[in-house]
């Protein structure tokens, strides 16, 4: 009985952690996608690459402020 309970406990804990990781990945993914969208929107509007890169970095930094462990490396544009 104890073994079954322990097994169920481990299973639910694993499920919870996996779900948490998944949502975190989604969050980072969406964030990065948005940052890329902003990068191209600015370039479409005639901005310089430096301006577009700056806007990308603002969004990326914002993301990483919430989840610092997930993105310790800011992509260097260029």
């Amino acid at each position: 009985m104890k073994t079954i309970l322990l097994f169920l406990f481990l299973l639910t804990t694993y499920g919870a952690v996996s779900e948490n990781n998944l949502s975190r990945e989604n969050f980072i993914g969406n964030c990065e996608d948005r940052a890329v969208d902003v990068y191209y929107a600015l370039l479409d509007g005639g901005a310089t690459w430096s301006e577009a890169a700056g806007a990308f970095h603002i969004l990326y930094t914002d993301c990483c402020f919430n989840y610092p462990l997930d993105c310790d490396e800011m992509p260097i544009i260029g």
Partner: peptide
């Protein structure tokens, strides 16, 4: 810092 870069670059 990034906004300053964007403004000067613009």
């Amino acid at each position: 810092k990034y906004q300053l870069t964007g403004a000067i670059s613009r």
